[in-house]
Amino acid sequence: MIAVSEPARARAVVGFAAVLVVTGCAGSGNQSTVLVSAAASLTDAFVEIEAAFEEANPGVDVVLNLGGSSALREQILGGAPADVFASANPSNMAQVREAGEVDGEPRVFIRNRLQIAVPAGNPAGVTGPADLAREELLIGLCAEAVPCGEFGRQALANAGVSAAVDTREPDVRALLTKIGAGELDAGIVYVTDVASSVGEVDGVDIADADNVVAEYPIAVLTGAPNRDGATDFVEFVLSDEGRAILVKHGFESP
């Protein structure tokens, strides 16, 4: 969706094309596909996990569907086929689970913290959440329906700041892009997002007392067309190898 970064999108498309090619000669091999709907903030880490998983499991093709967690939730509830759902907050996962779409218990596989992202060099001189109240700055947050928006609002409330918001972007990647382009002076994103955009954005820390720790749950879906592949993928994400990749991208182990 809008959130998908260009290389990731390209890879997802290539993956999808591969599925079609493989399906075309399904008789000869035992190739299977795992469709993973993952929060946009997982983009870089999951692209790498996808590659590692496919290397460890020849014949399995992972297709990533990346987007805002709430948008992914709507897709799943709307009946779009998916094997795995990795959400950036528990509430979207909970809604999917209440609808009976989750197979078993969702498991928190990773944590993430919030950080203030500013354009590289921090031209507006942002030092902390209090600066987000400055009217003369262009401030962006995530829309409240997506986890980074929900958590961002909590963090601001914790810090007692009433932010002068200029836009509520539909997902964290869209927000990050506009900060990186210098069109926004600051916005609240995940630590991992700042880490993925080194050179374009700088991070300004939010005090631990005010910060919100986001828990990322992952689950196999009831309607998974490829349940075995989905289970393998979830296990891989929870494995040491999977964790290592996630930590490398700035996530914290649960």
Partner: peptide, 8 residues
């Protein structure tokens, strides 16, 4: 609109 003007 959402790309250029944002959403507020």
């Amino acid at each position: 609109t959402i790309t250029f003007a944002g959403n507020l």
